[in-house]
Structures are given as structure tokens and as C-alpha cells.
Write a protein that binds this DNA or RNA. Sequence first.
DNA 1: ATCCTACAATGGACATTGTCTAAGTCAAGG
DNA 2: CCTTGACTTAGACAATGTCCATTGTAGGAT
Lengths: 138, 138
Amino acid sequence: MSDLLERLRGRGWRMTAQRRVVAEVLDGDHVHLTADEVHARAVAKLPEISRATVYNTLGEMVSLGEVIEVATDKRAKRYDPNAHRPHQHLVCARCGAIRDVHPSGNPLTDLPDSERFGFTISDVEVTYRGVCPSCAAA
Amino acid sequence: MSDLLERLRGRGWRMTAQRRVVAEVLDGDHVHLTADEVHARAVAKLPEISRATVYNTLGEMVSLGEVIEVATDKRAKRYDPNAHRPHQHLVCARCGAIRDVHPSGNPLTDLPDSERFGFTISDVEVTYRGVCPSCAAA
DNA sequence: ATCCTACAATGGACATTGTCTAAGTCAAGG
DNA sequence: CCTTGACTTAGACAATGTCCATTGTAGGAT
Ligand SMILES: [Mn+2]
Ligand SMILES: [Mn+2]
Ligand SMILES: [Zn+2]
Ligand SMILES: [Zn+2]
């Protein structure tokens, strides 16, 4: 049973078959699916689920802080259930594989006060790009 | 006259009114416009310029390395003429203002070998998010 | 167990962003 | 000037995302 689903249940969510399958699809490590990929996998488990419901459910999970949106791809947003451990992403420029990574130190401290222009900074998003071992071999 | 335009001229580009206008629109500091914003400003100078030409011209400038695409926004790509000085971005979460910033040190060195999973990393994109001084005052 | 009703799901229209193509136009070399 | 291949154009198409009116249902109340 999905850990994510447990957390959502604890927030007074009405539990529907649709929300259950979306949560199931998002379960696991290094999961960074687009909304359409989530929909495709959800349909395999619950054929009548609609695109609108997938978008709604993902949006609600994001609002609740249980899922994060990542923009590693310049096309569709990706949805990441690893919302409770801060991390960054490593993306293969060839095949699109995405891995969670944990840089040493806080990336925020790399930005000196003189480069903050009076902003109150609350968040930093880092995307490393390169070529993964299997693409390099081929 | 645009510095960007001078560099493009030196590459044997056929100089057309459309390309001139797109280059003029992108001239300046802290410029990070979407393709449609570029089109709107270009139309003000050259009413018959088409959307397709703006997309084509931006794509060519990116291929030549004279403009970079940035994904600070999770919707449209933004086009940045500051392609020759490596930098990162600071974005206001309220009004969307974008500033160029220069973090101390190389963000690549923050990622230890043990977190590289055999990838050959060539690039890193960092987006700092927060609230700008004018939005904080309001 | 059944009923109620507020909340959720659905399908489809619509919006935004981006790509592609066929046909017309023009910058620049000869 | 001509010519020609590169450039531009309008609009169709594709991908991603949002919105809304209608229908369905989870879960508390009776
Ligand atoms: Mn992740
Ligand atoms: Mn910039
Ligand atoms: Zn790869
Ligand atoms: Zn602001």
C-alpha cells in the first residue's frame, strides 16, 4: 500500500477509486512522470478514469505538498512523489532518464547576499544535465 | 545597434527585416521573454512578422549559441540573449520578475562523485525562487 | 440499510505553446 | 538587373493544460 495514499487519507480526503490509482501509479523511487504518463498507467488499472481527474488529482497532491512539480523537461511538467526529502535532479540529455540526487551542502548558500537584490529566497531548483552510463556505452 | 545582431551578421546570416527586429527585441540585460512576448514586441515594429518566423529565428539563435533557452517558468520557454556569461536565475514567485545572478563557485562541484551515478555531467541549471522587494512591500 | 448532499469524476470545449508544410517573397551574389 | 536558394507566411496540426456543466458517489446522518 502506498505511503503517499496513507498520508492523503490522514488529511480527510474522500477516498475514491480514481485517487487510489493515481497514488498507486506515483508510488516508488525516482518516479517523475508527466500527467499523460500518469493517465496512461492509471487507465491500465481503471479504464474509465478521465484526463481531467488525473490533472485535478495531481494538482491537489501538489497543493497539499505531497507531490512536487518538476520542470526538468522543457515540455510537460513532471510529478514527483518524493516531496519530503529535499533533492535535486540529474537528467540524461539523450534518453531522458531522471535520477534523484543529493548535492553536498545547501545550494542556497552559494548565492551571496550581494547577488540577492533584496529578494527573500525560499527555494532553489537545480537540474544537472549529462549523459547516462548506458547512453554513453551505446 | 544590437550587439547580438553584430555577432549574427558575422556568421553569414542573410539579414532580413524580421531577423533584425527579433534581435532588437532581445537586446538588453535581464531579458527573458517567451516566444509570444517576442512576437508581440516584434509586431509592434514590423506588423506583418509571423509567429513561425519568430519561432524559427529564436531556434536558430539558440542553435548558434547566441541565445539560451531557460525554463524558469513551468509553462513557456524563455529566451535569454545573455549567452556568453554563464549565470543563473532569480525569480519572483509573485510577479514573475527574473534577474540574472552569479553564484559563487561552480554549482557542478556541489555534486559529489558518489551522487553522479556514472553520468558525464555537462551542464547545470539553477533557479532561485523567492519574493522580490517590490512584491514584499505591497 | 437507506437516504442526502457536498464533493468528486466525466467528456468535451477551449486555451496556450509549439511544430510543420506548401506556396509565395526577397537578399545578395553574379 | 536577374536568378536562385534561403527566408517568410498563413494556417493546419500536435501536445499540454484548463474549465465547465452534468452526472455520479463516499461517507455521514437517519
Ligand atoms: Mn525527484
Ligand atoms: Mn539570464
Ligand atoms: Zn541516457
Ligand atoms: Zn515580485
